[in-house]
């Protein structure tokens, strides 16, 4: 504190500003961080639930971060696809989740010993689906929207035909894992935070992650820096498929078993959390902390809508309008160039 005071005196140029400059600067940095609006929104809705419903704040958030974790996992894949740019978007995630859930639950068949095999199959199925999208988009030259949607419809058909003949049950231990708590702290919510931190490190601290953002900013410049844009972009689709597969099996375990509508709400929501979190929709900048906050925000918003008995129509309107409004208010990605 004294340090701040002396600096205030010794720098007359900054003394015209109110308050302490360095503290102000620090606050400003935090406020200007792209993830801040998502955190503010998250806290606002959290408090609103407490006030409106009179529910305990701790139980609200601990339930919230469990359910948000599925969205965090899918959203991270979507974030990588959006961040590599070139109009990247993965509309197949919801279909990958549903198919992976059915596959994994058939393999697990309610036996704890099959957990690893089940998760592995779900992830591999997702990776394969992502690889098909990647080939269609990067090597055949389809627009990402069409490539992923076409793969999605293919998967949907496979799921429709295949799901009729199987009765899959998630392994009970995996189901317990998704809902277990240590005191008030939900283990699965912590898993979500750990995954988010891990991928934030991958994106911001590894050479692969730096290439992902570089390719999204300027593919030509990135290729001079030894990144192969087509390969980096392809890897993002594969990653997104794998993450969607993982989220699918976990969600099936959480909800007791697979269902045909399992992933459907995640198609828009996975894009929404990327946008809400302050990542650039045109690519080049991914913010995973913001994505996590955005996922909790959306989950709490659904909780709030359920508490206030808002109809499903309003939930659609709020979610859709939220994306458009955030996009409209966000800094124009075109002005970046």
């Amino acid at each position: 504190m004294t340090d701040l005071d002396t600096r205030l005196k010794t720098s007359p140029a900054e003394s015209t500003k109110p308050g302490r400059p360095t503290l102000g600067a620090a606050v400003l940095t935090v406020l200007k961080h792209p993830a801040t609006p998502a955190f503010i929104g998250m806290i606002a809705i959290w408090l609103a639930i407490g006030i409106i419903a009179g529910r305990g704040l701790v139980e609200t958030i601990s339930a919230g971060i469990i359910i948000a974790t599925f969205l965090v996992i899918v959203g991270i894949g979507q974030l990588f696809v959006i961040t590599v740019g070139n109009g990247g978007i993965d509309l197949s995630v919801s279909y990958v989740m549903t198919l992976s859930a059915f596959l994994a639950c058939q393999i697990m068949a309610g036996e704890n010993s099959n957990i690893v095999a089940g998760i592995l199959v779900a992830v591999v199925a997702g990776l394969a689906a992502g690889a098909v999208s990647a080939v269609l988009i990067e090597f055949v030259g389809m627009p990402p929207l069409v490539g992923t949607l076409a793969v999605g419809f293919g998967l949907q058909t496979i799921t429709l035909v295949y799901s009729g003949s199987v009765v899959g049950v998630a392994a009970p231990a995996l189901s317990q894992f998704t809902t277990a708590q240590i005191g008030p702290i939900p283990i699965f919510g912590i898993v979500g935070v750990v995954i988010a931190v891990a991928f934030a490190i991958i994106l911001k601290r590894t050479s692969y992650g730096r290439r992902v953002e570089a390719v999204g900013q300027k593919p030509v410049a990135a290729s001079f820096a030894n990144a192969r844009p087509a390969l980096i972009r392809a890897s993002a689709y594969v990653l997104s498929g794998g993450m969607a597969g993982l989220a699918g099996v976990l969600l099936a375990a959480y909800s007791g078993g697979p269902s045909l509508g399992l992933g459907s709400s995640y198609q828009l929501a996975s894009i929404a959390v990327v946008v809400l979190g302050g990542s650039l929709i045109a690519g080049g900048r991914g913010i995973i902390s913001g994505l996590w906050a955005g996922a909790v925000l959306l989950t709490l918003l659904t909780t709030l809508a359920n508490i206030t008995r808002l109809s499903g129509g309003w939930q659609f309107i709020i979610q859709g309008a939220l994306i458009v409004i955030v996009l409209a208010l966000a800094r124009n990605p075109m002005a970046r160039r």
């Binding site: 709020i318 979610q319 859709g320 996009l327």
Partner: peptide
């Protein structure tokens, strides 16, 4: 005007249209 990606805006708006339609006719 804002140079926004049409895919995301129209996808978001599709939920607004759908939501309004469901409010009118559940």
């Amino acid at each position: 005007v804002r140079g926004l990606p049409s895919i995301v805006v129209t996808l978001g708006m599709s939920f607004v249209w759908l939501g309004i339609a469901i409010l009118i006719l559940p």
